[in-house]
């Protein structure tokens, strides 16, 4: 009885991926994660910070790193319109049901997760004025 009460209280806080956690194989296959490093960008059309941050990452490149966008818009038409407007050069996966993002469970969007060989290596939550430099720095730190 005590244990069930303890578990029910803690189920209020369902934790997402922490640094060092492996990505669920089903989610990894939905994201088409390959070997190497992928940067997952979670965004939505209604998120003003995302609209400010994404253009900075349009021409981001780092050797051996692939950018993958995850659009969490429930409205697929709005999602496609937003992606077309920004003409994002990287592949974007739509997640209207929130199945992918709920596994990661960030406390805010935009959220960036750096995944290397299927393991979460780092994350950047929220908007940052110079996201390119910050992302580059985090990737360098992982390489070391």
């Amino acid at each position: 009885m005590r244990l069930s009460l303890f578990l029910s209280l803690f189920s209020l806080f369902l934790w997402g991926y922490e640094i060092g956690d492996p990505v669920d194989p089903q989610i990894a296959s939905r994201l088409h994660l390959q070997k190497g490093t992928q940067v997952l960008l979670f965004f939505a059309s209604w998120c003003h910070s995302c609209a400010r941050e994404l253009p900075q990452l349009k021409d981001f490149s780092s050797p051996g790193v692939e950018l993958v966008g995850v659009d969490v818009d429930e409205d697929l038409r709005a999602a496609r319109r937003f992606q077309k407007k920004l003409s994002l050069p990287f592949r974007v996966i739509n997640d209207p049901q929130g199945e992918i993002i709920s596994q990661f469970n960030p406390v805010a969007i935009p959220a960036i997760y750096i995944v290397s060989d299927g393991v979460v290596k780092d994350r950047i939550i929220g908007s940052h004025p110079d996201i390119r430099a910050l992302l580059q720095e985090r990737l360098r730190r992982i390489e070391r």
Binding site: S8, W46, C47, H48, V72, G98, I101, N105, P106
Partner: peptide, 23 residues
């Protein structure tokens, strides 16, 4: 108490579910 707490859980809106609130 368990039932009351589970009610609070349902009220929690995740950051990616705030599309309507962002209007």
């Amino acid at each position: 108490f368990a039932l009351l707490f589970s009610g609070c859980k349902a009220l929690h809106v995740k950051p990616w579910e705030k599309e309507i609130f962002a209007r």
